[in-house]
Design a binder for these strands. Structure first.
Lengths: 130, 130
DNA sequence: GATTTAAGATTACACCTGTAATCAAAAAGA
DNA sequence: TCTTTTTGATTACAGGTGTAATCTTAAATC
């Protein structure tokens, strides 16, 4: 079992960039992040450093520059963070969260279509597992 | 628009107790919390204080003791925290989170039943809204 | 080769958080 | 009334976080 690496909000922005494309030079990461957040280059470098120390990123040298890749897998972190929220705030009920979104009119057509597909597959699996 | 009150993990434990039943004397809150967490009474008092300062709790004096109630509504906070997670980690797709749970075999019968009901209601609303 | 640049490493600093201990005041008991 | 208890208020303190500035070193330029 891996220790649960805690990722801060700012660090998550960096990770999201690298989960989308990796490896990336720090300079490219800076560019990507700055399209989204108004952060100083030094700030982004600090976050890269912290993520490496936390074991969430790895890097290899390319001359003067570093090329970063995620170690922490997106799915793993999604799963951990999702479960934590559901457990702490929705008494463990995923449907509870979805219900909240629905009430707020925040469910898209696409969401509903995907949910139907998920349910269909789940039911099929249920059947075949008996 | 209310300012987005940031609630820490430890503070959330306190809020969960008060969302379930309020108002409550601090002594009772301590008892409730200690059934779940091994925290010193002083720690719990500190958290109550911080929540009051953050505007998440109110209190009224009852002689020597205080009687606390939530100001921050559970639904509001659920909505904010849920949206934040979905946006930051699942590209805004609620279904994405549910899909992750499904893949992990973490969807219960009850979840699926509830999801179906949510979808049914959503579709009915869709129809009647044209 | 000497100097300027530019990359990462180190340091900074205030505020938040977890986790209490101590202080002050009022109530309860002797 | 004096003392003990109990309650909230204040203080503590290390580690995390947001947000960089400064330092160091190696590469690039003159």
């Amino acid at each position: 079992m891996t220790e649960p690496v805690e990722i801060s909000n700012a660090e998550l922005v960096i990770l999201n960039v690298l989960w989308q494309q990796a490896p990336l030079l720090s300079a490219d990461i800076v560019l990507q992040v700055q399209q989204q957040e108004d952060w100083h280059e030094k700030t982004i470098k600090t976050l890269l450093n912290r993520l490496v120390k936390k074991g969430a990123l790895s890097f290899e040298k390319d001359g003067r520059a570093y090329r970063y890749s995620p170690i922490l897998a997106q799915q793993d972190y999604q799963q951990r963070a999702g479960s934590k929220l559901i457990n702490n705030l929705f008494a463990g009920s995923v449907a509870g969260l979805v219900a909240g979104f629905a009430q707020q009119g925040q469910l898209s057509d696409q969401d509903v279509a995907q949910l139907k597909a998920i349910i269909a597959e789940w039911e099929q699996q249920e059947d075949s597992s008996c």
